[in-house]
Write a protein that binds this DNA or RNA. Structure first.
Lengths: 241, 241
DNA sequence: ACTTTTCTTAACGGAATCTTAACGGAACAC
DNA sequence: GTGTTCCGTTAAGATTCCGTTAAGAAAAGT
């Protein structure tokens, strides 16, 4: 069963909560329910939901207080669902950290779209606009960081050049598979690359100097005679210890 | 020489535009105006505004088309201001990349708060609390204030120009990640930016002069050879002292 | 209209990087 | 043994890249 995103609903109106529960669970969210402000504050910290929906006025505490206290430690999206109210009130809520103010009666499709938009904002780690190569690959003592464009051995930057990094990155992504010289050439020098792989040998020498203890007995970068290069897979490396 | 954030307003209703212009410029925004969808698309890419407000229906193109075409290259916040409409329509707009849908007649205080919320979202990189509400990013002795549009070193304004600020702001938001030259060019000069990054080098020199003690050994702004620039992450900076 | 600031482009020097050539050893075939 | 091929290594020349300065154009302020 797929892992579902948790949504915390804070509202004292039992009927409305049930309505939201049905709507949200149908869309694959796991719904938690809090009837009071205190409960909401507590559950937010204990369950760490992906998103929070709340009434502006709760039986015990003003919703704005809940927002403020959650915002002391978390940026999870908070959408306020409530009756129409003075614009000052709405502005205050937003400025306190609410991400949206939605007027009741709620329109289901719009609510769901606003939820998606709010979640999207937290993901918008400012720009997956184009990069598929995010994150890091860790292989033994080696870390290939595609965000910093760097390679580390035990936390220390080994200072690869641009082409060196591209070569290591390429091999690392293929996780133990062999890449032919031709393939590497094309990846790095484009479709018009020559067929002299002298340049690869030079790069490989320089890379090994930087990341291998002993270039004669490499731990990470292997030559497959007559074929190409490969890097140890993460699984192999994980068993080293 | 006040440095102001640019807001692009796309609406064919002259009177409403004037109303927004007055409201926004009073709050320190610089207002640009587009009467048609084509104009809006074009101005977005040529002026690179910080934020965009638009009517759902423009004389020539559907607003949603404008959103889609802007979203191909930028994540700038887009708020749709329009008449009440079917929830499906609202949902579609939000799913296409709009950040909010605000019903006319607009309530000024609420609009401004929603604008602040939208701008706040663009900076919410990788869950960092500090600026949930404040609108500032603090990195070591450096403070990047997105509301005043200024950068301070130890409380004193270093007087960055507009482009300089945008560059620093962009890098600061990415919190330690490398931004390629190409990406920075696009963010600052739009999708039609040339591929000569000479302009970036000049800006970087000038910025470093203003915020670094020693431009040869920068503490904040690093060059990743052959790739782009990056700014120290707040986590790294927090460990300095 | 004038001054000042900001933006953009060009030119240059030094450093880092890329590329090519040359050499040497290992493996293999004959 | 000899020759050949393949791969690693080194070094040197060529090239690219980056920072810097300066000057003219454009924009903003007075």
């Amino acid at each position: 069963m797929a892992i579902r995103q948790k949504v915390l609903v804070a509202d004292s109106d039992r009927e409305f909560c049930d309505f939201l529960s049905d709507l949200l669970s149908e869309c694959g969210y796991e719904v938690l329910h809090a009837a009071t402000g205190e409960e909401a504050t507590h559950m937010a910290s204990s369950h760490c939901p992906e998103l929070m929906l709340m009434e502006r006025i709760l039986p015990d505490i003003e919703g704005i207080k809940v927002i403020q206290s959650v915002r002391e430690w978390s940026l999870l999206p908070i959408l306020v669902l409530s009756e129409p109210s003075e614009e000052q009130v709405v502005a205050e809520l937003l400025d306190s950290g609410a991400d949206d103010y939605i007027v009741k009666p709620v329109r289901p499709l719009e609510l769901l779209a606003r939820i998606r938009a709010a979640i999207r904002h937290t993901r918008t780690v400012s720009g997956d606009l184009q990069f598929a190569n995010t994150g890091k690959i860790v292989i033994g003592h080696l870390t290939v960081d595609f965000e910093k464009y760097r390679v580390y051995v035990d936390e220390t930057d080994v200072g690869l050049t641009q082409n060196e990094f591209r070569m290591v990155g390429l091999l690392a992504r293929y996780n133990g598979k062999v890449l032919t010289y031709e393939r590497v050439m094309q990846e790095l020098w484009g479709p018009n690359a020559g067929d002299d792989n002298q340049i690869l040998r030079v790069n490989m020498t320089n890379i090994r100097k930087k990341i291998e203890d002993d270039a004669l007995q490499p731990k990470y970068l292997f030559t497959e005679a007559g074929v190409g290069y490969r890097m140890v897979s993460r699984e192999e490396a994980a068993q080293w210890k």
